[in-house]
């Protein structure tokens, strides 16, 4: 569970997470926006189906995989948010063609 310091300033970027509209800060990565939105886990694993959340925030662990604008398994901690972006949390194995 994370919150913003007053320093964060304006939340000017509108995105959706699992269809729900959310405001993010320009410069946020998608992973930061997920935390800010209070998302508890971003995926369940393809092996056992247990929930996972971003762990390293620096592109190393691949725990932050989500579907961004229809493309699955993208590293949320490396992708900056963009106006209108659609983010979806994932379940298990990636669907083919997504």
């Amino acid at each position: 569970m994370f919150q913003r310091l007053p320093d964060a300033g304006d939340l000017a970027v509108a995105i959706t997470i699992d269809g729900k509209p959310v405001k993010a800060r320009a410069g946020d990565t998608v992973a930061a926006a997920l935390f800010a939105a209070g998302i508890d886990h971003c995926r369940t694993t393809p092996v056992s189906g247990t929930p996972r959340a971003p762990y390293c925030m620096m592109g190393v662990c691949f725990e932050c995989l989500v579907t961004i604008d229809g493309v699955g398994n993208r590293q949320a901690c490396l992708v900056p948010v963009q106006e209108g972006m659609s983010v979806e949390t994932q379940r298990g194995k990636r669907e083919i063609g997504r």
Binding site: F2, A32, A36, D40, H41, P51, A53, Y55, M57
Partner: peptide
């Protein structure tokens, strides 16, 4: 260590530096 809610200190620091985000609770 795989449970949501567990992350590295470096990750916490990245959230602070790049998004002014800090843990709550």
């Amino acid at each position: 260590w795989t449970l949501p809610g567990v992350m590295t200190a470096g990750a916490g620091q990245i959230l602070l530096k790049s998004g002014a985000m800090v843990p709550q609770g």
